[in-house]
Write a protein that binds this DNA or RNA. Structure first.
Lengths: 129, 129
DNA sequence: CTTCTTATTGTAACTTTGTGGCGTTAATGA
DNA sequence: TCATTAACGCCACAAAGTTACAATAAGAAG
């Protein structure tokens, strides 16, 4: 049977951080923004929980860090495929772009659970420099 | 001016490992395969060097590890875009697939250095179980 | 072949990222 | 209000990756 979920202070705080931010955030970003209000380990668990519930995307960026971003066009448990994650090599930020595009056909025997573009480059502010 | 590159024993050994392997490898894979012949830190530096030269791709997989794979259809400094990285959630291996597909159009002001699909799912052997 | 320069290596110490165990706290349903 | 147990904080630990520095060895020059 399903394990029940509780709406705790920690989850609310982490969710607020996401809602006040346009782009994706990594674990360290969130911990810093919460300024000691929620334990480091708890934040890991909350993020994993959000991911399991399908509330956030998980993005492994080029810098080896894992970023998280709120899902907007995804139904629970099923992430949308027409999705691109942009990593700015200048300011090391990640953001989600809604794009159209069919994921490629996989060879025989392969099955896909999730597919997304990963694009790295420079964002407008870093390009301007 | 350009910093010169030297062709060392370590680089040769790491390159041989890549050439004997079909898929992508992470740092730990390589160190293990070299069985103490090259130091852990040196392997990090060699991989970073290969990446800077455009000899290998860098792939951040879902498990938080960074994988490396030889570039085949990429010219120096310019990676090919028609590329997909497949991560098997079963055996935790990564491989490159040659696929066709236009990367999405980016919003105004953004510039892309590299674009690739990141697909996670199950490979034929893990699907068969 | 010897010498010089400096890119590269190995070693150690350290930072960052992420996980597991455990006793305590508090969110929910009765 | 009380009982259940999901979730929390804290600790220790594992793995990934970086930095500093002295020693080594490519490659170029003589």
């Amino acid at each position: 049977m399903e394990k029940q979920r509780r709406n705790t202070k920690g989850k609310q705080l982490v969710m607020e951080v996401f809602q006040h931010e346009a782009g994706a955030l990594c674990h360290a970003d969130i911990v810093q923004r919460l300024a000691g209000k929620v334990d480091r380990v708890t934040v890991y668990r909350i993020l994993q929980g959000f991911f399991d519930e399908g509330v956030v995307h998980k993005i492994s960026a080029e810098n080896g860090k894992t970023y998280y971003a709120l899902c907007h066009d995804c139904s629970a448990g099923q992430h949308a495929d027409n999705h691109a994650h942009f990593y700015c090599m200048g300011c090391k930020t990640v953001l989600c772009l809604e794009v159209t595009g069919q994921p490629p056909q996989l060879p025989q025997g392969y099955s896909a659970a999730e597919a997304s573009w990963l694009i790295s480059g420079y964002c407008p502010s870093c390009n301007a420099v």
